[in-house]
């Protein structure tokens, strides 16, 4: 009885995961394979996968999604580490600055996306500011920063939202690490750069990398930000998947499911590769 206790305590949480996570994933997988005995589909096949993998639209969407995710994560991580280092020492106004730094943690991405939209469109706030300093004459002169080729608006939104997120974790890690390691390295002769490169970075990197996994996964699978700020072609994969799923043509559903599965596979693969890479970096340090 005593041995069963932990399982008993975990059962409600696991039930939720089984039903509403694994269940959904499983049904999605079955549907993507055209296997659904309930509605009479008993012969699984790979038609949906063949269909999407030979479709240029899908491949371009996949490429775009990977590009957005990797770029956003890398930029956010770098800037978050930098801001963590800036906020770390004590200085006048530190409390206020740290508070403001964390202010947008609870603000949902949708609001961030709307804010970026108001800021970046050709009639937006930045365009007006550019006009005020005589950089542009009319809205059309302002460079396209949303619905654009390079997904600048999308990446900007992610970076805006994820800097404080990773930054807060960086600050916590820095606090836990303390400054004694650096002091010690300094007495052993390490200069400022060497202390950062050989002491601080390897100490904080594991934590920073593991939190940025969350960012990577999020940016791969998010729907509302690319939907709001992205071009209509190519679309980010989640947007394409939802469009196919909600298409009146029900035959597109298996393909939508296949796309969702592909996102999952890529998310998992990317994260595994990333963790392996980071493990190597950390070990090399």
């Amino acid at each position: 009885m005593e041995r069963l206790r932990p399982y008993l305590m975990l059962s409600p949480a696991l039930l939720i995961i089984m039903l509403f996570f694994l269940g959904g994933l499983g049904v999605g997988l079955m549907r993507s394979l055209n296997y659904m005995p309930i509605i009479g589909l008993t012969e699984p096949n790979l038609d949906a996968y063949v269909g999407i993998l030979t479709d240029r639209t899908f491949l371009r969407s996949l490429g775009l999604t990977l590009y957005i995710a990797i770029a956003s994560t890398a930029i956010s991580m770098t800037l978050a580490v930098a801001s963590g280092l800036l906020l770390r020492r004590s200085f006048r106004g530190k409390q206020v600055m740290t508070f403001l730094f964390q202010l947008n943690l609870p603000i949902p991405h949708i609001v961030g996306a709307i804010g970026i939209l108001f800021l970046f469109t050709q009639g937006g706030f930045l365009a007006r500011a550019a006009h005020a300093v005589h950089l542009i004459e009319q809205p059309a002169d302002f460079p396209a920063l949303v619905f654009d080729r390079y997904a600048i608006g999308i990446i900007a939104e992610y970076v805006w939202k994820e800097i404080p997120f990773i930054g807060v974790v960086v600050l916590a890690i820095l606090q836990a690490v303390g400054d004694e390691y650096e002091a010690l390295a300094q007495t052993l002769g390490a200069n400022r750069w060497q202390r950062f490169r050989h002491v601080l970075l390897p100490l904080i990197l594991p934590g920073v990398l593991s939190v940025s996994v969350i960012v990577l996964a999020f940016t791969l699978g998010a729907y509302e930000i690319p939907f709001m700020l992205g071009r209509s072609f190519p679309q980010a994969l989640p947007v394409l998947a939802v469009r196919s799923y909600t298409d009146p043509d029900l035959n597109q559903r298996p393909q939508a499911m296949a796309m969702a599965i592909v996102i999952t596979v890529f998310s998992t693969l990317l994260i595994l590769a990333y963790m392996e890479l980071s493990r190597r970096i950390v070990r090399k340090e």
Partner: peptide, 26 residues
């Protein structure tokens, strides 16, 4: 003037050899 801290502070991500050689590497 080199300090040896009370809690030793060996760099956890380095081997013993790398720890000892740290100052010379710098």
């Amino acid at each position: 003037a080199v300090m040896v801290f009370q809690n030793y502070l060996l760099f956890p991500y380095m081997s013993v050899g790398e720890n000892v050689g740290f100052g010379l590497k710098m």
